[in-house]
């Protein structure tokens, strides 16, 4: 491939790298877990608390229907929010780090 070689373990100790790694981990795993909890609450609540899903909120439209719709909105929100944070913070930090190394 003709690529230059890096000293990986040296980069791995770079404070900027450690900062990037920490922030990425907290953000990505944090949101992944949060979104998953919201997602799994759907089968859980509908299976064990069906009465909740039957509460009518707008006309005949009940909590269950709106809760399902909210799953779509939450997924889109996570995607958009992550894009904003990644474009603003992570990409910036990565670029600074790569500049420093090269």
């Amino acid at each position: 491939m003709g690529q230059r070689s890096y000293n990986w373990s040296e980069i791995a100790r770079n404070p900027k790298y450690l900062e990037l790694k920490r922030r990425k981990r907290v953000f990505l795993f944090g949101w992944w877990i949060a979104a998953s909890i919201y997602y799994f609450s759907l089968p859980f609540l509908s299976g064990y608390f069906p009465a909740l899903f039957k509460i009518k909120l707008i006309g005949v439209i009940n909590f269950g229907y709106l809760f399902i719709l909210s799953q779509f909105l939450v997924a889109i929100f996570v995607a958009v929010y992550y894009t904003i944070v990644a474009n603003r913070d992570f990409d910036q930090l990565t670029a600074e780090l790569v500049d420093e190394i090269q």
């Binding site: 990986w8 990037l20 790694k21 990565t94 790569v98």
Partner: peptide
Amino acid sequence: DEIEVRQITGL
């Protein structure tokens, strides 16, 4: 270290 640096930074 190598795979981690690669996956996080894209180097």
